[in-house]
Amino acid sequence: MAAAALVRFGLLLTLWIALAGAGWKGLAPGVAAAALSTWWSLRLLPPAPLRLHPIALAGLVLRFPWQALTAGVQVALLALDPRRQPEPRHVTWAPSLSPGRARDAFLAYASLLPGTLPAGDAPDGSVVIHAIAGAGSAAAGMSEEEARFARAFGLDD
């Protein structure tokens, strides 16, 4: 717990310094804000063992800009090209990750990917995905991304 608290405090203080600058003047409120945020984050998200796979994680991170570009271009074309129309559909998708923080983290990540926006749980335990176009391939795409995500964070062992 102490090690996790120290790491989180360090990361939050680094974020503060990145945003507010490294001067002594702003350091005292930064330390106070980082300490308070660390305490709150430990209450909301207690530390859990994480088995990162660096190569898979690097692949996921490096792939993200391309995904962001694809997602943005797809939506921009739908919004600006009068010949294209969005075909919004809700599709259900059966995740491999168990309910919990790992699945929640993946669904948050998936909301930034092209064409898909998780929209809550279905009564049968699957996840409802809002697809803005190409609903047919949305579920398969989600499964592929979930596998990449699980590999990067060691959730598939």
């Binding site: 962001a68 570009l69 997602a71 943005g72 271009v73 797809q74 939506v75 921009a76 919004a79 969005p86 919004p88 909301s111 930034l112 092209p114 064409g115 926006l117 929209a119 809002h130 803005i132």
Partner: peptide
């Protein structure tokens, strides 16, 4: 619909 507008506000604006 609202969810499609969320796609616009998140994905295009993020890029």
């Amino acid at each position: 619909d609202t969810s499609s507008r969320l796609h616009a506000l998140t994905k295009a604006d993020h890029l």
